[in-house]
């Protein structure tokens, strides 16, 4: 709509939006501060700002590692350098002679590699196991959900008869239900079948609860592609599946990344399913929930360090893929 011509109004708008920004970001900033405080600095009745307390890395090292503080500092330093190098690689992805997505995939894979290799080199604490479980569950969910979702989304975009509409509407109905309605029987069946407390059960439950959203969203991306494109490929002798994999998927790739981002957030952030279906193999959100009860003052700084640690991977992913996320939100394809 029309922009205001008044200079004062514009300044006021910027001020309001800046306040909104502070309101969105400040809580996390405060947590970063808490995460480098000693418990006694975080629980006094007067909040302490930088300069009033001595910074410490103790919370992070005791959260992640079972080694002495000096060793932990070294490990942290090496990891920091590796991550900065990878981040630089990401920033200059546009200058490299291959597509950006290859670089990003490479970075993600290296980070996953580092995470998986580290425990064999240093003595890691329990929280580290939660991270590994989270990585396994998130990647497993992404892989299964996107591959079967893309097939179904494509089928539903191209086969336009009553049966497709019925599947879509039913999927929407199931999307509206809270996941607790599916997970209660699963706890029961998992106990009976022995799949309780396994990654595979959690992954498939996450895939299932995500599937309605995934097929709706992917379908909307497939529908933007004209039929002529795969018809041309099929004229050249490719089968439907070949045409789909070699011609359609590369075109719709940005849409798959967008959908993948939402899936990733849902899988990584899930608390309820993991809490109910896992006894020992906790994921990060479940691990963090142990800091939520009680009044133990040491928990405040430890919980802050845990919060920052859990959030950093998401922030990295969002920084790289921000435009896909916003596009997905904006497309209104987020039907449920």
């Amino acid at each position: 709509m029309e922009h205001t011509k008044s200079q004062t109004a514009r300044i006021i708008i910027y001020i309001i939006l800046a306040l909104f920004m502070i309101y969105s970001i400040f809580p996390f900033g405060w947590t970063i501060l808490n995460s480098i405080k000693l418990p006694k600095d975080a629980t006094g009745s007067i909040p302490k700002i930088p300069g009033q307390f001595e910074a410490t890395g103790q919370n992070y090292s005791s959260l992640w590692l079972n080694v002495s503080e000096a060793d932990a500092a070294q490990v942290g330093f090496v990891l920091l350098i590796l991550l900065v190098l990878l981040a630089l690689l990401g920033l200059f992805a546009g200058r490299l002679p291959w597509p950006n997505s290859y670089t990003y995939t490479g970075i993600v894979l290296s980070v996953v590699g580092i995470v998986l290799v580290l425990p064999s080199m240093v003595d890691t604490a329990e929280f580290y196991d939660y991270l590994i479980n989270s990585v396994i569950v998130t990647i497993g969910t992404l892989a299964v959900s996107l591959s079967i979702g893309a097939l179904a989304g494509y089928g539903l975009a191209r086969y336009r008869y009553l049966i497709s509409v019925i599947i879509l509407v039913l999927a929407l109905a199931f999307r509206a239900l809270p996941s607790i309605s599916f997970v209660l029987p699963f706890f029961y069946l998992g106990q009976i079948s022995g799949l309780y407390d396994t990654h595979i059960l959690l992954i498939f439950c996450l895939v299932a609860t995500n599937q309605p959203f995934t097929i709706w969203m992917l379908r909307s991306f497939f529908m933007e592609i004209p039929r002529e494109i795969e018809e041309a490929a099929m004229m050249d002798g490719a089968g439907r599946l070949r045409a789909f994999l070699l011609v359609i998927v590369p075109i719709v790739w940005p849409g798959i990344i967008t959908t993948g981002l939402f899936t990733l957030l849902l899988a990584y952030n899930d608390f309820l399913l993991a809490r109910i279906l896992m006894q020992t193999n906790w994921t990060l959100p479940v691990g963090i929930a142990q800091f939520t009860g009680g009044e133990d003052p040491g928990h405040v700084t430890l919980a802050a360090a845990a919060s920052v640690s859990v959030t950093l991977p998401i922030i990295c992913v969002i920084i790289f893929f921000q435009k896909y996320l916003i596009r997905g939100l904006a497309s209104g394809a987020v039907k449920g």
């Binding site: 990060l284 963090i288 919060s307 916003i326």
Partner: peptide, 28 residues
């Protein structure tokens, strides 16, 4: 502005609530 406002939205819900709670807790 859009990117910044997304912060609370992408936070893990348990974490986001914990962060939010600390603001109102003693020392917050």
């Amino acid at each position: 502005f859009i990117a910044g406002s997304l912060m609370p939205f992408v936070l893990t819900p348990v974490v986001g609530t914990l962060i939010f709670r600390d603001l109102f807790d003693i020392g917050g």
